[in-house]
Amino acid sequence: MRVVGQEILTVKNLSKEYVCGHKAVDQVSLTVNKGECLGIVGESGSGKSTLARCLLALEKIDEGEILLKEKSLYNANKKSLHPVRSEIQAVFQNPSASLNPKLKIIDSLMEPLDFQRKIQPSFLMDIRNQRTKMAERLFEMVGLPSKYLSYYPHELSGGQKQRVIIARAISIEPALIILDEPTASLDVSIQAKILNLLKDLQEDLGISYLFISHDLAAVNFMSQRIIVMKQGQIVDQCSKHDLFSDRRHPYTKDLLHVFEA
């Protein structure tokens, strides 16, 4: 199955220590292949969000290696980080905090394209350099009416804001999007819509996802492979079909038990 060159993200023995010497991420290795969604399940304190921030180069790492499309993220100085930035995007848990309340939606939405002008996403090729048209097309892709472009964030609901953020994440056609609890703060019905949207976009655009959540059912719905994290370490990993196998780690079984109750 694994073909070299298909690996979008490779993490080797990644460790990140906090000031107190406590290891937030401990010797984590994983790969994300092209077009795949890798799920990471863990409770709070499992290090899953710290891992996400390391992968986004928002935190320095202590040990290990992160390769994005075979380019290392961390011997990179600021300049060589730039091309890597065009390959990776993120969607966080709290949609309100992810949009600057003082900026109109269109300005937040177009931030990646405004600041990385060299990028030309395939689905925006025919209208490049037409900012409003590109924004409208992105909104169409995530199912938002274009009138919201001139609104401020506080005029939108949580689900709508999360759609804006997803539109922003796909706008540069990245190779990988890190989804850190993207639906945790939304209502059940909105959660379903957002998860469906993410799946649709993945199929249409062939983007890889790293889906991080404490909700095993959501991870199971989204991902082909699942990693279970506990106290900074990977305790279990399997393909979606093996989730109920007897060989699973006891912790995974506990989690399954909770979600099946």
Partner: peptide, 21 residues
């Protein structure tokens, strides 16, 4: 009914979640 269907289930895995709400 819609509320029930919107919840992802562990056993029944469908391609899409129902979102008729």
């Amino acid at each position: 009914k819609a509320l029930f269907e919107a919840i992802p289930s562990l056993r029944k895995t469908s391609a899409r979640l129902s979102s008729h709400l």
